[in-house]
Design a protein around this nucleic acid. Structure first.
Lengths: 157, 157
DNA sequence: CAGTCATGACAACCAAGGTGTCATGTCGGG
DNA sequence: CCCGACATGACACCTTGGTTGTCATGACTG
């Protein structure tokens, strides 16, 4: 309660953020497994799901954009997009901004598929207890966002 | 600012937590790459680093305990522990609680190695800007913790 | 118009991490 | 006290998320 509301000094900040990072690993793996489980009955791979989710949230994007957004190599994203295209889940439309790099957009089938998946996952997340408040979630987003920014320089490609 | 301080209704909670999850993926991958980069000069693999970190923080543990703590299969942890043992970074000591399942403990060499790595990573985290407060980090930890709990049921093994 | 940069496409390749299995030990209950 | 259930160690195999490298082509900028 002392300086609870004032920015942490760097040293302390480093220590605390380590705790955050320690949670991110297990969380990532559990979530991945949980997502995977929800997928097996359908026919989406994890990568394809990620692509569709991204498009669902942000609208049509180019492959490199998606790579950057998810901190994944554009080549990998490309493979997932190709896979998704083979399944008729996405299609490419001409990009007004760049003639060569086309935008990727979900097809109706793709939109339906991802909608279904997201609905199922949403239902799972609803169960989260602990009475989390808006303020807490917002704070969490801010912390993770800062952490992400701090690691920004890691990228090159 | 309306019900900023009261628990979120489930639907809204689900939506917001999705945002959190969306950050976890990129963060995990970037952090992993960043950690990897700091490791290449040394001789630790990512997995060995994780094992040493766990032991450093929690004291001696058994292999299955580490697996559960990190949401990783005990077999994989075992492999990492073996690898670490070959490099003389950890040693097993008899477990008072269970005769068969020995506790794993860092050797002096192991403790030195992980100390060095953690110090370097700590320095990186110190750079995080944004003036994060204690309250924010605490909230973040709570949210991630709840999320982790919500996914607890995912485990079987 | 030239040089640089971004994109698509394709090919290896790596390693994190899982699954399956078996033998051996441990432990709790009848 | 023994028996069955469960946990552990050990080992083999495999899936797949994800990278790196390369090359050609098309786009943008000075």
């Amino acid at each position: 309660m002392t300086d609870h509301e004032t920015p942490l000094p760097p040293d302390e900040l480093g220590r605390r953020l380590t705790e955050v990072y320690d949670l991110v690993g297990p969380l990532y793996r559990r979530a991945q497994r949980s997502v995977e489980r929800g997928l097996t009955d359908g026919e989406l791979s994890l990568g394809v799901r990620a692509v569709l989710t991204l498009l669902h949230r942000n609208g049509p994007m180019t492959v490199p954009q998606m790579g950057r957004a998810q901190a994944i190599s554009r080549q990998f994203v490309q493979r997932m997009v190709n896979e998704a295209a083979e399944q008729g889940l996405v299609e490419s439309i001409s990009n007004p901004a760049h003639r060569r790099s086309s935008l990727i957009r979900p097809t109706e089938k793709g939109a339906a598929a991802i909608g279904e998946v997201l609905r199922r996952e949403h239902a799972l997340l609803r169960e989260t207890g602990g009475g989390l408040t808006d303020a807490e979630v917002t704070a969490c987003l801010r912390v993770l966002g800062e952490l992400l920014k701090a690691l920004d320089h890691v990228d090159d490609d």
